[in-house]
């Protein structure tokens, strides 16, 4: 699925070269759910940009689905982002003027999917993240958790090889964050490969493997023995949000 060999990225900050990432070797197999952790400046964002084909490495190789991505031109990179990668951002990055449906349709527009098919698949994807009742709402009319679910639907809709989630729960309260993790886990169970960047250990423990970065290098790679199941955390709470203050208590009550 994802294979990077000796991947490196060096920026020029004025006349001084800054090494953001060096000698990274990493392999993510289909169906894996990987968390990337590390302090800020550790190179995890740089790695995500490289894995997301938004940036090109200064050294090393990157293979996605057996295809060599390093060395592609802008147009090929755009096509790869469109077909093989689904992004979920910390700041959601939905188009504010458009309905949830229109937002989810956007990747399919660039893929050349017919309008009728787009509407069908967008509705399906939104249903999959539990927003069947919110198809025509604009982002401003939705809660933070709902907005992030729209962006997950958008990431899913072109059936990408991998979903790259950059701090997807960073702007959400704990409960909404758990809901998002429940969705990711559900998707992962159905076979979707997910790479997630976070600095919250609680969130990372929902994945099946944690990779640690420090100073631009991979410093640790370990499986999670017993991943937390977000479904239980969410289902402990009543479905409605009335008892919002008990969120913390409910979570703390679990071991």
């Amino acid at each position: 699925m994802i294979r990077v060999e000796n991947l490196g990225k060096t920026y020029m900050a004025g006349a001084h070269p800054v090494v953001a990432l060096a000698g990274v070797n990493l392999e993510v197999k289909p169906g894996e759910f990987v968390a990337i952790m590390g302090p800020s400046g550790s190179g995890k964002s740089t790695l995500m940009n490289l894995l997301g084909c938004l940036d090109t490495p200064t050294s090393g190789c990157y293979f996605l689905d057996g295809t060599k991505v390093s060395g592609m031109n802008d147009t090929e990179l755009a096509r790869t982002r469109n077909r093989k990668i689904g992004f979920v951002f910390q700041t959601f990055n939905l188009l504010p003027r458009m309905s949830a449906m229109r937002n989810v349709e956007q990747p399919m527009i660039y893929a050349g999917v017919s309008p009728r098919e787009r509407v069908r698949r967008a509705a399906q994807a939104l249903e999959r993240v539990g927003l069947a009742q919110r198809l025509h709402h604009k982002p401003s009319e939705l809660s933070g958790g709902q907005v992030q679910r729209v962006s997950i639907a958008r990431a899913l809709v072109n059936n990408p090889s991998v979903i790259l989630a950059d701090e997807p729960t960073g702007n959400l309260d704990t409960r909404a964050g758990e809901e998002i993790m429940a969705i990711f886990q559900e998707l992962n169970r159905s076979g979707v490969t997910i790479v997630l960047v976070t600095h919250e250990p609680d969130i990372a423990l929902h994945t099946s493997r944690i990779v640690h970065f420090r100073d631009g290098r991979l410093v640790g790679d370990e499986p999670v023995a017993d991943p937390l199941d977000a479904r239980q955390l969410v289902s402990v709470e009543p479905a409605a949000n009335q008892s919002g203050s008990s969120d913390q208590g409910g979570e703390a009550g679990l071991p």
Partner: peptide, 16 residues
């Protein structure tokens, strides 16, 4: 600019 970035991430080519 942000919208353009989002569209590029979603797969818009420079030409689009």
């Amino acid at each position: 600019t942000r919208e353009i970035g989002i569209r590029m991430a979603l797969g818009a080519r420079r030409r689009d």
